[in-house]
Simulated scan of single mutants.
Amino acid sequence: MSTDAQSVTVRARSPYRGRPGRTFWKTSIAGRDVTDLQGMYTKKFEIDPSSSVATAGSCFAQHISRYLRAAGYNVMDAEPGPANVDPELLRDHGYGVYSARYGNIYFVRQLLQLAQEALSGTVREDIAWRRGDRWFDALRPAVEPEGFATAAQVERQRAEHVAAVRSVLTDSDVLVFTLGLTEGWEDIESGLVYPTAPGTIAGDYDPDRYRFHNFDVAEIVQDFTEFRTLVQSVNPGLKFLLTVSPVPLAATATDDNVLVATTYSKAVLRAAAGKLASEFDDIDYFPSYEIVTSHAPGNEPFDQTGRNVRPETVEKVMAYFLSEHVAGGRGGDAEASAAAAAPASVSDPVVAKAQSGDYVAVDERVFCEEAILEAFADED
């Protein structure tokens, strides 16, 4: 190559020339500890310490909710439990986990359905599922572990819940929502989507009534866009912070290996969240999924099950969040702030009760209905 040709090559312009270091793997990721990944998150909008923050989503969102409270954020609790009751007992019954007692909301369609119900003020009918002689709310079956004596009691308590959800949607300033799953079960006639398959906690699977549905990117984007429009019609200033749960599927209803099914689901959820954040100024995306699953040296985010996120990993995730959003104007080292904010109960094991009535230790550190599906792996 001639000297003149070399000179032209050196002076050639490239759209990648002069880009920030965070946009290159070599400078922002390679060889760095998971606590030192560069440019992982830059907030799109402020979350003021006095802002009313609502939380909802899949089981991983419980970690975020706990840390936000412990870090001094004004996290809403529109459905507090009875006074003078042991806090652990209240949590076992779904109180204080999220901003209302809706349990885990795994699907955006589920979130949209709940908003439609709450803002219309009309409680859905035919949502009582039976297990033995007890009745459960099919749309949040885990919040009453022992169920109710009658279907009428399910409907009465749901009416109270729907009123609480309405206040969450109308009075919050920011909604933090974690997308968890794409694989769900719906009522064939009504299209109603449930957080668990019928027959898992309560109810009974009838293939003539229920069907499996695996949501795609377009459906999720459309559902959240519809949810956003609906809620902002009564709360115009509401902003949204999306995350994607890094927790793998406990089981898949597809014929794929569960790892392959997990990869598909997380890719769909991440793509949908990215699409929404790129289209709307009031929707931000926080990369908890990327931080947990990064290939940083020494990063071992899960325990021996390969599903349960280690408490120290959650602490690292929240350090990145607090480095951008620190309640009360606190500054300093983000990881130290996250450690100080870590709730003592974040590493407590929990026990889930399967359909059979046998207790199955799942050690999720949060309650996750999906983990109950692991019990069915041992059946013939």
Rank of each mutant, 00 (worst) to 15 (best):
M1C: 13
D4R: 13
T9Y: 13
W25M: 06
W25P: 02
W25I: 04
S28E: 04
R32P: 02
L37P: 02
K43S: 09
I47F: 01
P49K: 04
S52L: 14
V53Q: 02
T55Y: 01
T55G: 06
C59G: 07
C59I: 04
H63F: 12
Y73F: 15
N74K: 13
M76S: 08
G81V: 00
D86E: 15
D92C: 06
H93Y: 12
Y95H: 12
A100P: 07
Y102Q: 14
G103N: 08
G103F: 07
N104W: 01
R109E: 04
Q110G: 10
Q113A: 00
L114Q: 09
G121Y: 05
T122A: 08
V123M: 02
R131Q: 02
R131Y: 00
D133W: 06
P141A: 08
A142M: 13
A142D: 09
V143Y: 03
P145S: 11
G147F: 01
T150A: 06
V154G: 03
H161R: 11
A163E: 05
R166N: 10
T170Q: 13
D173T: 14
V174N: 02
G180M: 04
S190G: 03
P198V: 08
P198D: 07
P198R: 06
G203I: 01
D206C: 08
P207T: 08
D208G: 15
D208Q: 15
D216M: 06
D223E: 12
D223C: 10
E226S: 14
S233C: 02
G237L: 06
K239H: 07
L242F: 06
V247T: 10
A250C: 15
V260R: 12
T262M: 01
L269K: 00
R270S: 05
D282Y: 08
S294F: 04
P297W: 08
E300R: 12
V317I: 05
L322Q: 07
V326E: 09
G329F: 05
R330Y: 06
A334D: 07
A341F: 09
A352D: 14
A352R: 14
A352K: 13
Y359H: 15
E364R: 15
E369L: 12
I372K: 12
E374F: 11
